[in-house]
Each structure stands twice: as C-alpha cells, then as structure tokens.
C-alpha cells in the first residue's frame, strides 16, 4: 500500500470470520499530512468490514478532533488500504482451503 504517513494495523487477531474488527491508527510521518497534527497517540476503533465505509470513519475522526478536514482523504485512504488487505488475506485463506 502507498505510504500515506498514516499507519493502520489490526488491533486483534483476525479469525477470518468476524465482521467487526479492531483497528489501530497512528501518524507515522506528520510531514505527509497537510494540516498540523496534534500528537495525540494511536486511535483504537472497531470497523465493520461489510457495512462501513473507511471515508466515513475518517470523517468521524475529523469531527472528533483527531485530524483536520484537509486530511480526511489521506486518513480514509489509509483505512481503506488496510481493510482491502484484510479482505484480500481472507479471500486467499478461503481459496487455499478449498
């Protein structure tokens, strides 16, 4: 995935089945953000892999004061990339099991 300066990792082991999964997001390189970033730490949250949209969660983070509006796209993309990877791994696991 592209290096956005925002890192998103799994915050629990993926059993390959649960729809809602715990993620952890933190800023690895503040220089890649357009807005001035407050060093608040890592943000833990749960994400519904089926029903939720990464950009909506990013917008909620903006509204909660973690990021500025100008960075909503980069935060959303970072979450989207991680979610895509989780889904890809799951598909690969399922297909290799068949």
């Amino acid at each position: 995935a592209e290096d956005t300066g925002v890192r998103v990792e799994l915050n629990e082991e993926d059993d390959g089945e649960k729809v809602s999964i715990a993620l952890k997001l933190w800023v690895e390189d503040p220089k890649k953000l357009k807005g001035k970033y407050k060093d608040t730490g890592a943000i833990e949250f749960t994400f519904d892999l089926v029903n939720e949209v990464p950009e909506v969660v990013a917008q909620e983070m903006v509204e909660s004061g973690f990021f500025l509006d100008c960075d909503v796209k980069v935060v959303g993309k970072s979450i989207r990339d991680r979610v895509a990877l989780i889904k890809w791994r799951r598909e690969r696991t399922v297909s290799s099991g068949n």
Binding site: R7, E9, K24, W26, E28, T40, G41, A42, I43, E44, F45, T46, V57, E60, M61, E63, S64, G65, F66
Partner: peptide
C-alpha cells in the same frame, strides 16, 4: 500508558492509547 476515550456523535468509540514505539518504523 494513559488512555482516553472519545465517543463520536454517531456512537463510535475512539480509544486513544500510546503509539506502539517498536512498530513506528517497520520496513
């Protein structure tokens, strides 16, 4: 480390925790 909880109006919980230092610069 210290943690703080922020609940967005949509009901989502954000928990702020220390950045995992060992994982800051993974290759």
């Amino acid at each position: 480390g210290e943690t703080a909880q922020v609940v967005h109006s949509a009901g989502r919980k954000f928990i702020v925790s220390p950045v995992p230092e060992a994982r800051l610069k993974e290759p």
